[in-house]
Design a protein around this nucleic acid. Sequence first.
DNA 1: ATGAAGATGAAT
DNA 2: TTCATCTTCATC
Length: 184
Amino acid sequence: MLRRSFFARTVHEVAPDLIGVTLLVDGVGGPIVEVEAYDPEDAASHGFRGQTPRNAVMFGPPGYAYVYRSYGIHWCLNFVCAAPGRAEAVLIRALRPEHGVDAMRERRGLEAERALCSGPGKLCQALGITRAQDGLALDEPPFELFAPESGPPLAVGPRIGITRAVEQPWRYGLAGSPFLSRRF
DNA sequence: ATGAAGATGAAT
DNA sequence: TTCATCTTCATC
């Protein structure tokens, strides 16, 4: 199991290391196949303009969940990294449905495994993540994180949906996975 | 009090 | 490509 100290590093080290890590929420989830990194010097990050009630968790200690509402409809899950005061976090964008697939299908109202967790909003709906999980520790229930046996092949590319003038190769994924939100 | 933008998803 | 949907935050 991952210890909270796993996240006490720069997001640029943590993000690629999360590919292949199994994420469970109340026993539902699977290996992460896609993430994105956000740091305080990044104009596209929620933390760029300073602390607000919404992004407060980003500025707290590492190893906690930062959950925010996206487009008024969806929820998105992040893992907070780096020392307190530095707003760094990894957006969890997709995972391979492995545990509790039936629960995911029920919550998503879909059958196709391919569509259950292939996007940050979909993933939260499938795992039952809402504001209720904002600020919760990642090494305590309902969360469970398991390191992979070996480092999987990584794909790297620019992030998705970033309209600001920030173009960096900060999206990481499991190369060739059919469960990505988008091909690299 | 008001407005504009947004780390998306699903349908067309 | 379009649009639903509404919170968040900045501004007035």
